[in-house]
Write a protein that binds this DNA or RNA. Structure first.
Length: 389
DNA sequence: AACTCTCGAGGCGCACGACA
DNA sequence: TGTCGTGCGCCTCGAGAGTT
């Protein structure tokens, strides 16, 4: 059994389940400066990945790898262009190659295995895009039978937003639903991707019962999304709760999450962070005070400041965008999903139904969203729902 | 195995009290 | 009186637990 480095043997973190312990241990070695001593080493790796027969210029052998890895994307492209030029690459291909090299460099800086991450993200996005609404069934009822299309919102959208145009209102409904699906996707994706970055370990909470109970074997880090084990004698064990935006946490969440973070700190030591990736100010933060009250000493971060701690790079937001853009484009090309196409098909279905019932569109939605057998609608007639349809 | 239920997550608009 | 900080409710989905 290997112990985690830079932490006392008696720290309970040494006794978390073996699989997780191994991931924590390997994260301790997974750092840019440990893999690449100099900027030249880093650039040579990128050239090799892209099968370019070019070597990094000698002067980069004197600069640490972080120098290249932390360059702003535009400056990086400029530098790479110069290097490619002096390497004798034909002028016409330099712009494109410089962009490719720079993108790859940012990915290598962020992940030890960028290809695997890109594949996983693309698969996840593909799966989610498949669930975008396509038929009238998809917008009439969510996956929970209780989530039906609101006919009053639909009427408001038709009349207030689209000058009475029903098809436009359906487009908005389809788009709104798709956006909500995307919100859910990205919220989870951020946590996953940040957890896969160098030096980090993603620690999802187990589902089901006892989600909040700390158990070294089954649930060692309740309240943390990402754990950063120390990478040298001067660094600390760090626990992060990661949110997309400051407003994501609902009332009471700050308090609950703060209590959990506090418990982790009391048990394992180290420092605790409450991060929101998107946001440029702490003003208007909905749960800052809640988390601070419950966990005095917690570090609350938004935007760049959060990315700096989570990615240990100066260009964290760019790293994430690079990955997403590559993946979204690929999935869009394959799926060909268009809100307008879906909406017009859905309106045709509604139209047939309204015609059959001799009603207007919204009227049929109103019926579908409010009518049902009494035993489905009245708890007095329904001690236990028996689906008889 | 397939379906349903349940709980908690996501983001946002809104209300309300504190404060300048 | 206007702005800010903070928490709640709404509507959505995901996924484990429970049921058939």
């Amino acid at each position: 059994m290997t112990d985690l480095l830079f932490l006392p043997k008696k720290n309970p973190i040494q006794r978390v389940n073996a699989k997780l312990l191994a991931r924590l241990r390997s994260a301790q070695d997974d750092h840019l400066f440990k893999e690449f001593g100099t900027s030249a080493d880093l650039l040579d790796k990128v050239f090799a990945d892209l099968k370019l027969a070019i070597s990094a210029p000698a002067e980069l052998s004197d600069s640490p790898s972080a120098h290249l890895a932390d360059m702003d994307f535009r400056n990086l492209i400029e530098l790479v262009s110069t290097i490619l030029q002096s390497s004798g690459l034909p002028n016409e291909s330099i712009t494109q190659q410089a962009a490719l090299v720079s993108q790859r460099l940012q990915l290598v800086a962020a992940f030890s295995d960028p290809n695997a991450v890109l594949t996983r993200v693309t698969k996840k996005v593909t799966d989610i895009v498949r669930t975008f609404p396509k038929t009238e069934k998809d917008i009439e009822c969510g996956r929970n039978p209780g989530d039906v299309l609101d006919p009053y919102i639909l009427a408001a959208s038709q009349i207030l937003l689209h000058g009475g145009d029903f098809e436009k209102a359906i487009e908005t409904t389809v788009g709104h639903k798709a956006i909500m699906i995307i919100e859910g996707l990205l919220g989870h994706l951020h946590e996953d991707i940040v957890g896969e970055m160098r030096g980090n370990v993603r620690v999802p909470e187990p589902r089901g019962t006892h989600q909040e109970m700390l158990d070294l074997e089954t649930n060692p880090f309740p309240g943390a999304d990402v754990v950063q084990p120390p990478f040298d004698t001067n660094s600390q064990l760090r626990f992060h709760q990661v949110k997309s935006k400051t407003g994501s946490a609902k009332g009471g969440d700050g308090k609950r999450l703060g209590e959990q973070l506090k418990r982790l700190q009391d048990y394992y030591g180290g420092s605790i962070f409450y991060d929101a990736l998107i946001g440029n100010t702490l003003r208007g933060h909905r749960s800052r005070s809640g988390v601070e009250r419950a966990a005095p000493g917690v570090v609350v971060l938004v935007g760049d400041a959060a990315f700096r701690e989570l990615t240990r790079r100066a260009v964290g937001p760019q790293l994430l965008l690079r990955l997403y853009q590559a993946s979204f484009q690929q999935v869009a090309d394959e799926s060909g999903y268009r809100v307008e196409t879906m909406a017009s098909a859905i309106v045709m279905a509604f139209s047939a139904r309204a015609l059959a019932a001799g009603d207007s569109f919204v009227e049929t939605v109103l019926d579908a969203s409010t009518k049902g057998p009494v035993e489905f609608q009245d708890s007095r007639a329904n001690s236990k729902i028996v689906d008889t349809i």
